[in-house]
Design a protein around this nucleic acid. Structure first.
Lengths: 253, 253
DNA sequence: CGAATAGTTGAGCCTGGTCAACAAGAGTGG
DNA sequence: CCACTCTTGTTGACCAGGCTCAACTATTCG
């Protein structure tokens, strides 16, 4: 996986994006912007060469040039300790914005890797800031998005600090189901683009624990598992487990 | 503690603040603002009646009206699960800004409680947004502050997800020492305004574990503990424990 | 000064981690 | 297209870090 870097030639197709026609318009930045403002934003956004599974969008320490919006696929961001311990700080699905955490030090504090084939829109940060200064709706929207990211992280803190393994996985599944639903997936169906290892690194668990929990949830009739395809068969009982954290998403969303 | 609410009469002394003469100027919002801009911001900021220990600044579910900057003292923000489990999502010392997580839903997702007698500056959020629209330096500064908060939370995720109990406490002590140093404390001296319980709720540990770790760190010569007064006697070994998370703060700061 | 709160320490247990073997897919090249 | 390899996932046995329960001590505060 490390070797594929050499292939990261400068992006081939830096074509302009057409936010106005994007199906994710409601999810990305433009939410709440009218025609003229949207056009101004659209000038900034660039499409990137698609990422293959395992390719990096940026790496820990890279200087901040752009924020990124996922168009299709999934990105995971990871922090790494010297001894190899990994924490996945987030999974970013289509319509979600990443790279915000790099603003404070002009440097990405984590690495971003495609978990499956992924398409990305790139938004040069300094230009974005300039436009936000002109367009009130955009500034407002950016504050909201950044605040939402903080909220999301705080829910993760509750999860990692105070929830049991089964509660964490339940909450995570509910959250994924909800986000994929918004993207047009079948209600109760979850397609996991990430490995058990990734889930463990996200939830602060060993991959074996994640695997065992999948088996147990299935035995208990909460879900049906077929590899990375999961169907929720008892939402209520899953909610009663994953309650506080993911359940609150409905409250927040 | 719950009962004291009745005493929360509408703030007595809503006097104007003088950011220009505040010793925390470098830490709060104004950083990087020049005279005229600073004056414009100053119009917004109001001082609040001081909070006693245990008093709440706001509660989970309250609607967002203002962001708050700590002038003196310490605030803890907490998330609560139905069964009573608590996660402290942050300790806010003098010069630090809280309430940002409320922007996304116009509602505070956590409660904020004074851990010791605390003075607060209040900044009405909608006015702040309006001024930020006029003052580029302020918009920029706000983005940075919000990004820094995300960064801080992500470091906490690494801590809760992947560090052992002793690593967490070590990292926490180093972080507190550094932040208090910036506020003029003696290097290596930490005054803990919070209880062992609070620390446990912050670090995702039982209070007994925190207490035992203090004892062990002392036995091992890392620190000297006198109740809530702690002196770091061996920074290097403490760093080798708390490394990645708090150690990186120097990298990030 | 007495009561309540905060902190320390011990004993025993349990959740979740580690190590290990095995199974099942997925990708690759002949 | 199949065989082989490599990666991913499952399951079991055992272990240990940290939690719970409990008793006791030190502080703080009215």
């Amino acid at each position: 996986m490390q070797k594929k870097e050499a292939a990261t030639i400068i992006s081939i197709a830096n074509i302009k994006a057409a936010c106005r026609e994007c199906t994710l318009r409601e999810l990305c930045l433009p939410l709440g912007l009218d025609g003229a403002d949207l056009l101004q934003l659209e000038q900034l956004v660039r499409r990137r060469r698609p990422l293959k599974k395992g390719e990096y969008l940026f790496r820990h320490g890279d200087s901040l040039k752009s924020l990124f919006a996922v168009r299709r696929g999934t990105i995971k961001t990871t922090g790494l300790m010297e001894d190899g311990r990994v924490q996945v700080t987030g999974f970013y699905l289509a319509g979600e914005l990443l790279g915000i955490d790099a603003i404070s030090n002009d440097r990405h504090p984590c690495s971003a890797e495609a978990v499956e084939p992924t398409e990305i829109c790139e938004i040069p940060y300094h230009d974005l800031e300039a436009v936000a200064q002109q367009v009130p709706g955009l500034q407002h929207q950016l504050f909201k998005i950044m605040s939402r990211e903080i909220l999301r992280d705080e829910q993760m803190l509750m999860m990692l600090g105070r929830m049991t393994a089964e509660e964490r996985l339940a909450a995570c599944l509910l959250s994924l189901a909800q986000r994929q639903l918004r993207l047009g997936a079948v209600d109760g169906e979850i397609r996991l683009p990430m490995s058990r290892q990734d889930l463990g690194d996200y939830l602060g668990l060993a991959l074996e624990t994640v695997s065992r929990l999948f088996s147990r949830f299935q035995e208990e009739g909460l879900i049906e598992v077929h590899g990375r395809q999961v169907r929720i068969t008892n939402v209520d009982r899953l909610r009663s487990l994953g309650g506080t954290s993911a359940g609150q998403q409905s409250q927040f969303a």
